[in-house]
Each structure stands twice: as C-alpha cells, then as structure tokens.
Simulated scan of single mutants.
Amino acid sequence: MKTSIAIVDDHELMASALSGLVQKYEEYEVLYEVNNGKELLNRIKLKMIPELVLLDISMPEMNGFETALWLKNNYPEIKILALSMNDKEESIIGMLRNGARGYLLKGCKPFELKQALDSIVQKGYYYSEFVTGQLIKSLNPETFQDPVDALNLNDREIDFIKLACSDLTYVEIADKMCVSPRTVDGYRESVFQKMGVKTRVTMVIEAIRLKIVEL
C-alpha cells in the first residue's frame, strides 16, 4: 500500500514540482495539491484524508501554524512534514510544537525529502541536523524568544488583542477592524487557543503579562 500525501503550498509551481517528485517514489502517492490550510480542511471534511501532509508555513487564509494545530487537535493520526523557506528558530519550534513530525527547508536536496518521508512513515518523526541544532539552541536559557513569535500570533490577531483589551464590544471591534463579527469570532477562537485561555479577561491579563499590550 502506498502512503497517501497531500501537498499544501500557495506557490503552484512549487506544489507541482513537489508532486512530480513525490510521484516518482514507489512508496508514495499524491492525493491532491491545495493552496492553503482552509482548502485542506475542506478536502478532509469531504473524507479525502491523507496519511501525510507536506505543509508550507506562509500561506493566505490559513497558515501552516494554524493548519498544523487544527490537524493535531482533530486528526492527530495525519503526519505533518513542514516544508518552508523559513529557517528561523521560533518557526521551527512553533511547527513542531503544533504537531509537525519534521521540518525541511525548501532548498533541500531531493534525497533529503525522500529521507524525511521514509523516516516519518517508519519512525514517526524526522529531525535533520539543522533542526536538531535549532532545538538545542532553543534550550539555551540565554535565548530570548519574543512572546508574539512564540505564540505564532499574526498581525490581525495582534490587532484583535489590542482592541479586545479596551472596553469595546466584539461588534465594535469588528467595525474597527473593517471585518464581519463572524471574522472577529474566528480571531477570538484562534487567539484563545494559541494563548491557552478561555475568557476575554484572562486573555487581557496574559497579553499584559507578555507585554503584548501595555497599560
């Protein structure tokens, strides 16, 4: 039985190249290519469930961090291999924390991709020397990690947090952000999940503690 793979990347040329490369491997088959996490979720909800996901980080609508976390919480059996141009320590740690089983840079050699796929399928994980080095670096107590980077908050979520720390209602916040109340509900749910809080009050307290907002 071949291992089924979904490729999630907003760069169509990259997605197509990855698909062509993976199709050359006898042990794997590409189920589909999609442009972002939201499209992946839609396919999964239609029962088009891959065994492994090649996941980019920087994508519109639903990025890699959000997608990985959703998969971790809803389909933990789906293995994730992050594939990105981003070599920042906080991005690597963030993806692994959100459920990725491995992390590859897009500049890797074809044999490294095959090696990573095989390792994840057979062992359940793949850590290259580069990723291992970044993990060790992150354990250094002198390494400072910005709270926004650590929580993987995007610009719109930060805007939401700052407005939510006022006396504005969610409807008024939606008006200020020029989005619908439903979109603001989405920001709230995402921020609550990333910050590990359940109420607006605790979110505000945590935002102040982390100096995301100042009194």
Rank of each mutant, 00 (worst) to 15 (best):
M1V: 08
A6E: 06
A6L: 07
D10M: 00
E12T: 08
Q23E: 15
Q23D: 15
V30K: 01
Y32I: 07
V34D: 00
G37K: 00
E39V: 06
L41W: 04
I44D: 01
K45E: 14
I49W: 02
L54C: 09
I57Y: 04
M62W: 02
L71D: 03
K72L: 11
N73Y: 05
K79T: 03
L81Q: 03
S84D: 11
M95T: 04
L96W: 03
G102R: 03
C108T: 12
F111I: 14
L113N: 08
L113F: 12
A116V: 10
D118G: 08
I120V: 09
I120K: 01
K123H: 08
Y125H: 09
Y125M: 06
Y127G: 01
L135R: 06
I136R: 14
L139I: 11
N140K: 12
Q145E: 10
L151C: 04
N154R: 05
R156N: 07
I158L: 13
D159I: 05
F160S: 01
I161H: 02
I161E: 00
K162T: 05
C165E: 04
L168K: 15
Y170S: 13
V171P: 10
D175Q: 14
D175K: 15
M177T: 10
G186T: 10
R188Q: 14
R188G: 09
S190E: 03
K194Q: 11
V204A: 12
E206W: 09
A207W: 04
I208S: 13
K211P: 00
K211C: 07
E214H: 07
E214D: 08
